[in-house]
Amino acid sequence: MSSLGLDRPETGDDAVVPFTLDKLDTRGRSVRLGDALDTILNRHSYPAPVARLLGEAVVLAALIGSSLKFEGRFIMQTQTDGPVNLIVVDFDAPDGLRGYARFDHDALVKAAESGRTKPGELLGKGHLAMTIDQGPHTERYQGIVALDGHSLEEVAHTYFMQSEQIPTMVRLAVAEITRKGDHRPHWRAGGVLIQHLPESGISRQIDLPGDGNYEELDEADGWSEAKALLTTLEDLELADPDLSPERLLFRLYHETGVRVFSPLPMVERCTCSADRIEEMLADSFSAEDREEMAVDGQIEVVCEFCSTAYHFNPHQFGVKH
């Protein structure tokens, strides 16, 4: 640990570690997810290809959402025509993660039989929306980018260039690992996001009119080096339970220097509640609608994220005025 120059213990699972590469005019975040991700993925017993894709989305949401400087939610959602036709990941600032995927079983089987189970192939064509919700009395900010058979890593790069005009590179990895004494494999994942500091003024981008495309000009040497070093990172390193984020970053960037900051803990947490669902049923549905929803005198609502079942009497809502 002394070789890293840390004044604290190295970070374990379920945390984001912010860092800067000052000599390369680059900032970034590294995330490592263990039990939090395992809980999210095992709750629905997803097939392995779906679990890996959702895991990548959860890692990406943690990397982006953890940069929020206010209380609120960061919501990442894909809607596509592929075997995995919907993914929703919520980051509830400052530390809560939940995620859900919907897939077509028959389409997934066909994709597996033909060997088309890469993330971009499972997603297919559609769009990815990233939404920042700062709560009541504020406007939501939403950025949308097309999905056209590309991975979430590639899509994140395009999103930041088109929506934020920030040169960005992302690495994501998800794995099932069985350790000695475990009764089953456990899902875990890691990711690194780096961004060229916009205030450095070294690289320039220009907008092209009409379609939101962009062109890069005069890429800075420091940014090129930061990206090149990140490409050497192996998936197993990102998901290795014995390799802390600090040691991973030191392994990548020790020659140029890396400065790490205090970790930000991540937890699996669903934001559903009986009160919220009761309010939704009262405000969005008529008494007749609620009567039709009832089975054996009870309305059952199951949270798609955490699978918690809530039960209501259709007559408990009173009369809407």
Rank of each mutant, 00 (worst) to 15 (best):
L33D: 05
R52K: 09
G12H: 08
D35E: 15
P47Q: 03
E56L: 10
S114K: 15
K180F: 13
T117Y: 12
S307F: 00
D207I: 08
T308W: 00
Q142P: 07
E246T: 07
H137A: 14
L243K: 06
L21Y: 03
A282N: 04
G297Y: 02
A175T: 02
Q205W: 15
D35H: 13
G126M: 03
C272I: 00
G34A: 09
L217C: 11
F250S: 14
L230K: 02
N213D: 08
F160A: 07
E300Q: 00
Y159G: 06
P136A: 08
R52F: 09
H105S: 04
H315I: 05
Q162E: 11
S307A: 14
D218M: 11
V17E: 00
V192C: 03
V174P: 05
F305N: 07
L97R: 03
A48F: 10
P47T: 04
E10V: 08
L128G: 02
S151P: 06
S3K: 12
E71Y: 14
L86D: 13
F70E: 12
E268W: 04
M280V: 02
D95G: 11
H150Y: 07
M1A: 08
S66V: 02
G257K: 15
A220D: 14
D92N: 06
L152D: 01
I277L: 00
S284T: 13
E255F: 06
G126P: 03
T271Q: 12
G124C: 13
H196Q: 10
L63W: 05
L53I: 07
G82M: 12
H311K: 00
D289S: 08
G34P: 05
P9L: 15
G124Y: 12
H137V: 09
L197G: 03
E71F: 15
D95M: 15
I202D: 14
L229I: 14
L193R: 01
L152T: 02
A173C: 06
T131G: 01
I177A: 03
G257T: 10
E121P: 12
T168F: 06
T80L: 13
A61Y: 05
G181V: 10
T26W: 08
L128S: 03
Q134T: 10
V170L: 12
G126L: 03
A48P: 14
H183F: 14
M161L: 09
A189H: 07
Q165M: 05
E292F: 10
V295S: 04
E71Q: 15
N85A: 06
F70T: 06
Y141L: 15
V50E: 02
G115L: 08
H127A: 13
R171A: 11
P314A: 12
E255A: 09
C270W: 01
D283C: 13
R204I: 13
V192D: 01
H157G: 14
A111Q: 10
D14N: 11
A129G: 07
E153M: 14
L217S: 06
Q162D: 10
P209Y: 11
A220M: 05
G12L: 10
G297S: 04
K23N: 07
D104G: 03
L97M: 07
C306P: 03
H137W: 09
R29F: 09
T271L: 09
L252G: 05
E139H: 04
V84T: 04
H137N: 11
V89T: 08
G222H: 01
C306N: 03
A309Q: 00
Y253W: 08
P314N: 11
L6C: 14
